[in-house]
C-alpha cells in the first residue's frame, strides 16, 4: 500500500457504488416491469372468467416474485423479457 491509498480506495469504491447503482436501477426497473407485464397478461387471460377472482389471484402471485416471472433473469433477457413474461401465466 503506497501513499494516499485510502483516497484511491475511496474514489474507486465511490465509482463502483454509482456505476453499480446505475446498473441495479435499470435492472430493478426491468424486473418490476416484467412483473407488471405478467400481471397484466394474467388479467387479460382470465378476462372471460370472474375478473374479481383473477385480480385477487394476480395479487397473490405478485407477492411471490419468484412465481410471477419464472426463468427470467433480468438484463440477460432484456430484449425478450416481455415475451417471456407474457407467456408466464400459461406455463404455471
Amino acid at each position: 500500500m503506497g501513499k494516499y491509498a485510502e483516497y484511491m480506495i475511496l474514489g474507486y469504491s465511490a465509482m463502483a457504488v454509482i456505476l453499480g447503482g446505475m446498473i441495479a436501477w435499470i435492472y430493478l426497473r426491468y424486473r418490476a416491469l416484467q412483473r407488471e407485464a405478467a400481471l397484466i397478461e394474467q388479467m387479460a387471460a382470465e378476462e372471460g372468467q370472474d375478473w374479481v377472482h383473477a385480480a385477487v389471484g394476480a395479487t397473490e402471485s405478485e407477492a411471490l416474485p419468484g412465481e410471477a416471472t419464472p426463468g427470467v433473469s433480468g438484463m440477460a433477457a432484456s430484449g425478450t423479457g416481455a415475451d417471456r413474461a407474457r407467456s408466464a401465466p400459461h406455463e404455471t
Partner: peptide
Amino acid sequence: IRLENFSERVARRKMEVLADL
C-alpha cells in the same frame, strides 16, 4: 432505451386490458 420502450409497451398493454375489462 430498451427499458423505456418496454415500459411504454407495458403501459399501452395495460390500457388495452383495462379497456376490455
